[in-house]
Simulated assay, not measured.
Amino acid sequence: MNSYTETEFFVGDIPYQMYVQYYLPSQDQKLVPIVLLHGGFHTGSCFIKTPDNRQGWAVYLAEQGWKTYIVDWPGHGRSGFVPNFPTMPYQRVIDATVALLQQIDPAVILTHSMSGVVGWQTAQTHPKLVKAIVGIAPGPPADLLPVITLDSHEAFPEDRPRIQSREDTKKYFTNSDTFPQETFENYFCSLVAESARISNQRRNVEGRGLYICDPQILFDIPICVITGDQDPRHPHEVDAETAKYFRGDFIWLPEVGLPGHGHMQMLEHGNLAIADLFINWLHSKGL
């Protein structure tokens, strides 16, 4: 028998509404709510179950007594279609996240990869709504990135959505020793198209990334960045610098006895050990 109940709702303005799946623990332990924000090319389903049908972070957190909210970004998955999706900017995701936080109590935000930018911006503009940020290999603010030109191979045409290739998926998302390789096809089928503009903003193409006006605004918010040793786009020095920029804590997984993790920590073998890691960190901050 489940120790939680499940419901769903939408927040934000149509057509940029955001789907929210909500897990309510049967016993209220007075813990701060936690919002799980997926990264690019994904939906909130990555937090529910692993490709090989192991328990995901959302259910695990609910069983530990956390009111848990999972979202699908606007234009992704269950949130539905938005017009001109290739040019949809980060601000649409940020606005929907703020709308969710305004509807619920102030919450912990757990971000992953490209949603790291959503977390930093939400905390900058609405710091009273953010109790803490757990960044799983989070994208840094534009302040820490070089400016990329439009003719760079890292810039993307905004007349069509981005589609994650099988080659890049294997290289950047499922390369780790702990990813369940036998379920690659199941995982690959779960990926969705991504806004080319958001991808360009994440890379700071033409300086259009999202900057932090005053990082001191975030200094009073507990921040923890967690990174694995087999994440090719998030080497130690990069994510450590992101944590340092916000005066946050940095956890390098091999240093706490969890080697062999890559970019998709929530799906890899040992995912619940990583959940215990950030749960204990949150408790250490009084949350």
Rank of each mutant, 00 (worst) to 15 (best):
E8T: 11
L31P: 05
V32F: 07
P33C: 01
P33W: 02
K49A: 11
D52H: 15
R54Q: 14
Y60I: 02
G65C: 10
P74L: 08
S79Y: 04
S79V: 00
S79A: 08
P83I: 14
F85S: 06
R92V: 14
V93I: 14
V93S: 13
A96N: 07
A96E: 03
L100S: 12
P106H: 14
L110K: 01
L110D: 01
S115C: 08
G119E: 00
Q121E: 11
A123V: 08
A123E: 12
P127F: 10
V134N: 00
G135Q: 03
P146A: 15
S152A: 15
P157Q: 08
P157M: 03
R162L: 15
Q164M: 13
S165C: 14
N175P: 00
S176Q: 05
T178L: 09
E185R: 04
E185H: 02
C189F: 07
V192P: 04
S199W: 01
Q201P: 06
R202K: 10
G207N: 04
R208K: 09
I212N: 03
Q216G: 08
P222L: 00
I226M: 02
R233H: 06
P235A: 02
E241L: 11
A243S: 03
W252I: 08
P254I: 02
G260I: 09
H261S: 08
H261T: 11
G270E: 04
N271C: 14
A273L: 09
